[in-house]
Amino acid sequence: MKFFRSPYLSFWLAVLVSLLGLAFWVSCSPETVFRYTSESGPIERLTEWAYLGAMGITLLFGVSLLKRKTLVAVLIVLGYMAAREADLHKALFSISILKIKFWLSGSYPLTSKLIAAAVLLPVAWAVGYLLAFRTISVLAGVRERMSHAISIIMIVAVTAISKVLDRSLNALVELFGWQFPQWLWSFQASQEELLECLIPFLFLVALFQYRSYIRQRGMSFFSNY
């Protein structure tokens, strides 16, 4: 479909989801918003399953589309993002292994930090590999307005925005002791959780846009690697 191949599809999907979050926030009480966006709420559960579904679909279609290392790296990133949504980054110890506090704290022995480093090593490799060997190709694709390349950039942008939303109010409370009304906390939750839920779907959009691209061109976007 022409609409699916549009270079701005992922952008408009992000705008639509943000507007849906706004409508959800306007039409519901803060308590209702918190109930649906809580860590054990339905939106977060949907996000977890969406990541698992994205992994399966990427494995199914990516074998014939992506170089082996690229496929493995993408699957690792999706798996870690699913694990984070399930709060597995807190499962080993009493604190998230993604927090700087864990690494700087003297409360945790060196063995614990070595275990955490071993757990994080695969995703560090995956992110490093994608940045080192795919950034140039993706940026070149953005300059040529390739839809899949722009969708990849949107994945990064939406991930960054959702993380900023997730930490913004909490950081202000921790740093300055500021207090915020419930309606603002619920607005933050409505935007952050829905945008996070969009991320695995953007992975699939990028995958199928890329599939459409190489079918049209008869070549691989990553053929040089």
Rank of each mutant, 00 (worst) to 15 (best):
193 E>R: 12
116 A>P: 14
114 L>I: 15
177 G>N: 12
7 P>M: 09
101 K>Q: 15
202 L>K: 08
3 F>D: 11
130 L>N: 05
132 A>R: 14
16 L>M: 14
216 Q>M: 04
201 F>M: 11
210 Y>T: 10
162 S>G: 12
3 F>T: 15
136 I>W: 07
213 Y>M: 07
64 S>H: 08
65 L>I: 10
221 F>S: 01
97 I>H: 04
166 D>Y: 05
130 L>P: 10
28 C>E: 00
147 S>W: 06
107 S>W: 05
158 V>K: 02
97 I>Q: 06
180 F>I: 11
197 C>S: 13
126 A>E: 09
155 I>A: 02
133 F>E: 13
75 L>V: 02
224 N>T: 11
151 S>M: 01
167 R>A: 14
149 A>V: 14
208 F>Y: 15
36 Y>W: 15
68 R>F: 11
202 L>T: 13
171 A>H: 07
8 Y>S: 01
51 Y>M: 08
14 A>K: 06
90 K>H: 12
40 S>C: 00
131 L>C: 11
176 F>C: 09
171 A>C: 07
220 S>I: 06
18 S>I: 10
51 Y>K: 06
99 K>C: 09
216 Q>S: 10
3 F>N: 11
94 S>Y: 12
199 I>F: 10
166 D>W: 05
167 R>S: 13
132 A>W: 05
12 W>K: 03
168 S>T: 14
160 A>K: 10
127 V>P: 00
26 V>T: 10
116 A>T: 15
83 A>S: 15
23 A>Q: 09
221 F>H: 04
28 C>V: 09
91 A>S: 10
171 A>Q: 08
116 A>M: 13
168 S>E: 12
214 I>H: 06
89 H>S: 03
73 A>I: 07
119 V>F: 05
150 I>S: 00
105 S>L: 05
168 S>P: 02
50 A>E: 02
3 F>P: 00
141 G>E: 03
10 S>Y: 12
179 Q>F: 04
138 V>E: 03
159 T>R: 07
72 V>Q: 00
88 L>N: 04
199 I>C: 08
81 M>V: 04
185 W>N: 01
28 C>Y: 05
98 L>D: 15
199 I>G: 07
131 L>T: 14
185 W>C: 00
118 A>K: 08
146 M>E: 09
58 T>C: 00
4 F>N: 07
130 L>D: 09
32 T>K: 06
38 S>A: 09
163 K>C: 03
120 L>I: 15
165 L>V: 14
137 S>G: 14
161 I>T: 11
180 F>K: 08
3 F>S: 13
63 V>T: 06
169 L>F: 14
203 F>K: 02
150 I>M: 05
19 L>N: 11
32 T>P: 01
94 S>D: 15
192 E>N: 10
